[in-house]
Design a protein around this nucleic acid. Sequence first.
DNA 1: ACGGATGTTCGCGC
DNA 2: CGCGCGAACATCCG
Length: 277
Amino acid sequence: MPELPEVEHAARCLRTWLEGRVVLKAEAADTRIFRGADRRAFARRLAGRRLERIDRRGKNLLLSFEGGVGVWSHLGMTGKWVRRAPVATGAARERAPSHSRARLRLDDASVLHYCDPRLFGRIAVHEGTPLAELPEIRALGPDPLLDGIDAGALHDKLSRSARPIKVALLDQAVLAGIGNIHATEALFRAGIDPRRPGNRLDRALVEQLALAIRASLDHAFVINGPGEIAYLSEGGHVQNDFLIYDHAGEPCPRCGRTLAKMTQAGRTIAWCQRYQT
DNA sequence: ACGGATGTTCGCGC
DNA sequence: CGCGCGAACATCCG
């Protein structure tokens, strides 16, 4: 599920659910979502703690609890946080959502489940160090929503490597939060051939690309109105409202030519061989 | 039934 | 050292 807009949506949901709440109990199944001692730390260090704040950097969720305990959550490919509302007294106990890998029982009797069928996500627990200062967070490039996209800075960064622009856009150190969908969409919107070396985009074209990235991300938020993302709805249905992502073989929305498909860095991309140059 | 999927990391070869 | 490639992870969906 998760690129920047979905993770932003998850952050907003978690803020609503966890605002002012205290964790009564934290539980975690033994999966590779947790590495090293993180599973035990998750279960042991969170009980009794009140949420302080939730931040998002790129695709990373940062949950800060009082007492300097932080939970870092990355959704991988199929991770999501799901809330189970309190069950009425006497009512049948609600079934846990499928693939629940970790749970936070809160003081309003709700339960937040971290669900992740493919186990590509990660959860880690940190004490003492503010999450934003972790090396993996510091290594992230600017976040398009939090920091905006500075075309000059992006041009500088892209000029340092000849790798294809599509590959550069997937690098979280270039921009934090762009994934395969929005890289595909933004390159189409900007009319750029995904194979073009990043260091051969001139400043004006990078400006165009920056606007295209922003437009592509904004579109995901606009689908269902402000703050709502259709394909993240509770029912879990995916609304494919993308211009060309997953539309290879269909006509280009701009010129009608059949959209091509290729693989770069192990990821597939749809693109228009006439319109993107 | 088979192929591919929104992400990241690691090992290998050049 | 840098880069590119493929595999790996585990499950679901069309």
